[in-house]
């Protein structure tokens, strides 16, 4: 298992969802655990890590499934680690229908800190734009 919804969000959640994409399933799951510790289950959250064969890497189908699992009508903020995680996430977003794709943002922020800060912001009901802006303040 190298991808899953970290925990089902409460169905009534209108908060922005968070997706964590790492080359390593251990890193992705660990970051998701830290997010969960911070915000409980009031933010939709999913992680994916590793390639299709379970090795280190990223893959589009896994990322698409994570976005689906963390879907919120308020939008989804995606956090990525190295290069391929970002470009593969872009490909996953472009394959969504355009109305949904417009509500997914790939954040230019550190994976762990960005996801935790974004989730804290999202848990207060902030918009996707605000969640992304708060996380991107951490970018070097």
């Amino acid at each position: 298992m190298n991808a899953r919804a970290a925990q089902p969000a409460s169905p009534s959640s209108a908060n922005v969802g968070i997706v964590i994409v790492s080359h390593s399933p251990l890193v992705a799951k660990g970051a998701a655990d830290m997010v969960r510790q911070m915000v409980g289950d009031c933010v939709p959250l999913a992680w994916t890590g590793g390639n299709a064969e379970g090795g280190l890497g990223t893959h589009v189908a896994g990322i698409a499934a994570a976005i689906e699992a963390a879907w919120s009508e308020a939008g989804v903020a995606v956090f990525v680690d190295l290069g391929g995680a970002e470009t593969n996430s872009e490909m996953a977003v472009e394959r969504l229908d355009p109305a949904r794709a417009a509500r997914v943002a790939i954040c230019n922020a550190p994976l762990v800190e960005g996801a935790v800060v974004a989730a804290a912001e999202a848990s207060g009901g902030s918009s996707l734009a605000k969640v992304v802006a708060t996380a991107e303040e951490l970018a070097p």
Binding site: N51, A52, G57, T58, H59, V60, A61, G83, G84, T87, N88, E90, M91
Partner: peptide, 14 residues
């Protein structure tokens, strides 16, 4: 290719 290469090369070749 995009769905199967993974890594940085998948999105580029795809």
């Amino acid at each position: 290719l995009v769905m199967n290469i993974g890594g940085a090369a998948g999105p580029l070749y795809g």
